[in-house]
Amino acid sequence: MATLWNNYRYLILRRVTQIGLMFLYFGANAWGWTLLMGNLSSSKILGLIPMSDPFAVLQMFAAGAVLSADLLAGVAVAVMFYFVIGGRAFCSWVCPVNIITDSANFLRRKLGIDRAQGFRQPASRNLRYWVLAMSLVISAIMGVAAFEFISPISMVHRGIAFGLGFGWAAMLVIFLFDLFVLKDGWCGHVCPLGGFYSLLGSFSFIRVLHSQEKCTLCMKCKTVCPEHQVLHMIGKESLSVTSGECTNCARCIEVCEDDALGFSIRKLVKK
């Protein structure tokens, strides 16, 4: 039991927050709970504290919408929050799509699809920044928040709270895409929201720290990491994972049997 907790504690906590948040949103619509109302695009905590998706608001700005003070306050709260705890902490601790892509990734490893595919990835992880730029360009041209009208993320979290409709199809598409087409396909290559939080997270405080002297080069961390390029220092140098693409999911910390990885606060002053 203790080893189970030790090996999966962050995973369990992440699933609890992800499912718990969705449950609170669902409860707000179904039973009138007021703890957390709305959805991940914009919500009110206790009917008081606003929180808004900064990327959605950025698209609205590009589309030429007049941004209200309420909305900007919500953006400020969200940006401050993710600025501190790590930009892509949204991806691994909040976003419900993460559960879908993690399970696809898990199956991929168990079924050996990775090995069948020969580890050749047909797309670059920088694709997300292209999609991010394009969503702003299309928002500006079409005069609507472009990604919000196709976002499978919104279909899922809004669907859970307000009725899914055909949103399950979007979930299935992402699952199959990640399982059979591209490893870490949606979250690690395509999703512009992840790209946005990667950029925001480049400055975040809470980071994973690697101690090279403890590392035995088993490389379990790189196998389990959905953004393995951020772990370039493993076995080479004692460094913080400074890339914003790290989702702070902490799977690397759990799988490491040598205690060579752990959370730390980023050093504010460079050596």
Partner: peptide, 10 residues
């Protein structure tokens, strides 16, 4: 409306 609504459902 289409460009301003953030689709939060409040």
């Amino acid at each position: 409306f289409l460009k301003t609504c953030i689709k939060c459902g409040l």
